[in-house]
Nucleic acid binder design. Structure first.
Lengths: 208, 208, 208, 208
DNA sequence: AATGAATGAGCCTTCATTCAT
DNA sequence: AATGAATGAAGGCTCATTCAT
């Protein structure tokens, strides 16, 4: 059975097992053994390929972040105009892949992790800054720089907030929008009213 | 030294130690020993008074929730009109007591905890529903029921999102508003524009 | 049963258990569990009091070294003249306490350990330098400085060599002197002939 | 690349890798993986050729012992008279090959190993007895049998002692002779004074 | 009222060893 | 001839929890 070239296959399996295991529990209190079992391998193998529990977590974060970034990148490429790019970011953030319960739970768990783990913090920081750039750049073409920053912050906060609420909702705490559609609508509406309220610089009329 | 009537004093000390210990680490991976030491007592005593680690956590959550509710209650009593009550909720949510780094970190940690612990979930659910009622009730007097629900959801999401960002911010990830004032302004602005966009039913003008 | 003030008792029991366990095996491949069991406590307690396996080893070395130093100190105090002090060191080195099989085995195990562990090296270095000082000082009153250094080195080498041979002997490899008396006689004879071969500086006649 | 006839080449490479790996660490706490890597092969191959870790160690000991014996044999053949044969043994014991830091460290490690491993003990016993025979035979021609035994023991102890001190010296503990020459001189001097002190039986005068 | 003493259970991690290719 | 793949077993260490005082 031991064929050569198993490493990438195992790594992927273990990372996916980590996501689902973390997702099920809702936090990082999972053992390497649980993850490994869920991946159908021994705990020793997981260590062999990743070097340790921390690295498994880091690799899992990196995977989550990379998939998200990749999806955002794709949506951005197809988007039309600055307003379209904003919508693209929002749409991807609540896309099926992103908004799956266990993905969200893992996401939040890593948010918390970032508070005590330097590497996790750095990783998250990179993604956060990139997201912020995307939003501020697009908004900057539609309004003043200061407004752009503020609105970007609002959008990001809304997304994070809806994430956390979704995580709790799927565990029957909140009654908020279980469906991505409502979440998207809520954020879009926010963008619209904020943009509607501010003058676009350089544009002739501005708001009447 | 062991005088009678120490129980409430010890309980309080332990709960406060729990908040600060959790707050410092940013998650619930704290030992009973750490909490106890920070409270100046032995781990055995913490056990004696609370019965176990889980109960310490629960009591700490309850404390956090109770303080918050109490503050909201007070602000609500002084508030003028429905719009004032909304502002009261927002203001309290970002008040100095609530927005202290370690309080926020503990808060988030318990949010995560609620995903895997039934009792924590129930506790959080009660508070969430009460907050929601407060918001929806007030908003209901200013707009249609459906709009009220949606805006309440938006407000709650913004608050949660700004919390999580604040937690990460104080650990140097985000560049968002470090100060409560900006956070409050951001949410207030949201409320204003959302309310501005919807017609208030039953009020004379109504929607045209 | 758990009386207060157990710590020193346990520490001592664990250290003695470490010596005998290491002595029986003849090397440091002993588990904390084995040591603890031999001391009649749980492995957790050994960790509790010492902090870890390394520290148990270090404490054990320190104990061995301290006892030896203490014995040397006592013998030195009673010794008459420089030649007597040399004999004192030799006598103590092969004294019953020092020359017990498990003590010797432990001693050697730590010698080996010193090659890969910094702290053990430092510890052993202190003792080695002190032993060297004692010998060189005493010899320096009986012969030239350079001779003293050389003879001290010879004595130390003989002691170490006889130790290692004793360790193997008690495991049926060598046929050397099983008894301390022969070992002492061998070293004493070495000292005598070396001293007899060198002129004592400052003394007129030298040897006849 | 896998040509036929690789076995002896691999065996030798692995044994030499074992010596250097053990020598670097200064003890037997080396993994098969480390040895194999240092030999440029996989751990599985080392297993394949030797059957297990223990056998690798045994083969390494055997190699060390065989080289030493071979060198002694060669030196003995060229030596002149019994006194010359004693010098030959001493000279070889501190020869460059024998006195290399990693060789000495490995040697000591195996000495310690012999205390807990039967096969290692047997192996070492054979060599020890042979060395003893060589010395006692040669000495027997220069002095009484009893003296010969005693002096042989002294020589062996000195050699072992200087070895162990050399091992520690190269790790900066002792200040003894770093160079083989001093070690040889020290032992030779010992032999001379011991022999000078005893009457040679069967020889004419002897000392009165 | 309070704590030191003590431990069982569990987790991470390492490693020798096996096996199929 | 040689190795990547894989694992069982074992050890160090932590920690919540109990107990006697």
């Amino acid at each position: 059975m031991p064929r050569t070239g198993m490493e990438p296959i195992r790594r992927k399996a273990i990372i996916e097992a980590a996501i689902s295991t973390i997702g099920e529990r809702g936090n990082l209190d999972v053992t390497v053994g649980q993850i490994a079992r869920s991946a159908g391998v021994s705990a020793a193998l997981a260590h062999h390929y990743f070097g340790g529990k921390d690295q498994i977590f880091l690799a899992t974060m990196r995977h989550l972040l990379r998939v998200y970034s990749h999806n955002v990148g794709g949506a951005l490429a197809e988007a039309k105009g600055p307003r379209g790019r904003i919508s693209a970011v929002i749409r991807v953030s609540f896309g099926t892949e992103q908004f799956a319960p266990s993905t969200i739970a893992a996401w939040l768990a890593f948010y918390v992790r970032a508070q005590s783990d330097d590497q996790a913090r750095r990783l998250l920081g990179i993604y956060a800054r990139r997201l912020n750039s995307n939003l501020v750049d697009a908004l900057g073409q539609l309004c003043a720089r200061d407004d752009a920053k503020r609105i970007a912050e609002g959008i990001a906060a809304l997304i994070d907030g809806l994430y956390i609420r979704q995580a709790l909702h799927s565990r029957a705490i909140h009654d908020g929008p279980a469906d991505p559609a409502s979440a998207i609508a809520l954020v879009e509406r926010y963008v619209n009213s904020e943009l509607g309220a501010v003058a676009r610089p350089g544009k002739k009329g501005g708001k009447r």
